[in-house]
Design a protein around this nucleic acid. Sequence first.
DNA 1: GGCCAGGACTCAA
DNA 2: TTGAGTCATGGC
Length: 290
Amino acid sequence: MRLHLPKPPNFNFKQIVWFLDRGYDDCLHKVEGNSVWKPIKTGNRKNLIRIEENHSDLVIHVNGPTDQRNDILNYVNTWFDLDRDLSGFYAILRKSGSLESLPDSFYGFRIIAIPDLFESLAWSIIGQQINLRFAYRIKRAFVESYGEPADDDLGIYHFPGFEVVRDLSVTELRELQFSSRKAEYLIGIARSFSNGSIAQERLADMTDTAEVIDELCKTRGIGEWTANYAVMKSLGRMDCIPWGDTGMLEAIRKMRGLDRKPTREEVQAFYKPFKGWESYLTFYLWRSLY
DNA sequence: GGCCAGGACTCAA
DNA sequence: TTGAGTCATGGC
């Protein structure tokens, strides 16, 4: 079956594809030519979809049961942040001076979501303090061990649920080159989901992002950086700044022509004109590094 | 070979 | 509450 989703204004599928295929070995999707394969879960149902574009629409090819039409459309809508009107963000960039070229350079680029909060927290724990290439390697080892294959030829998987991870041992994760501490964090977070002390729906209902961040930071292993990253990617909040993020600091350093990392105050000043668009500014800063 | 990676925690003062 | 030390391993 094929589903159609109209492309919104200020959208460029090629930028999306670029992001999903920017040289890392990601085990959760696969880019082939101009289309993207993605295993998704809608309700209790697992699906493998393929997304491509025509002149006006995103075209979604669905393998398997098709009774979850709306769930699939919603997933893609969330994944590519299609409901967002970027014109306000672009207007600020265009009059910002040093960032005025970004809307043209990366026109139509959107935040690629990680709709599941456990997945984004797990991914950011994995990514803490190691280079991205190594992080992707560990993620693949983890997902190949404890996730579910979606397609053997494509080498892509469904991310393991917290019900699986909560019962793992530090030793098992150590074998996948997790540090003991990361293993403890990840298992601990899975248990927090399991006992309800972290619940995506409850956090999504909170209006104040700062409160959500505080709430998440109560769990061991989740700091300011991880919480902001996960809230941006999984709850679609627009006002997230992953303080201390190496890439973000490096991008600002270049833009400002500094010979050192910007201070927290300098970062704050940099973000100040972008109230309500902090997450997008972060995403575009990361984009600018490539 | 050494510094640093899409950090966070611990412990001392 | 601030700062240094620690964790682990790979990329460059």
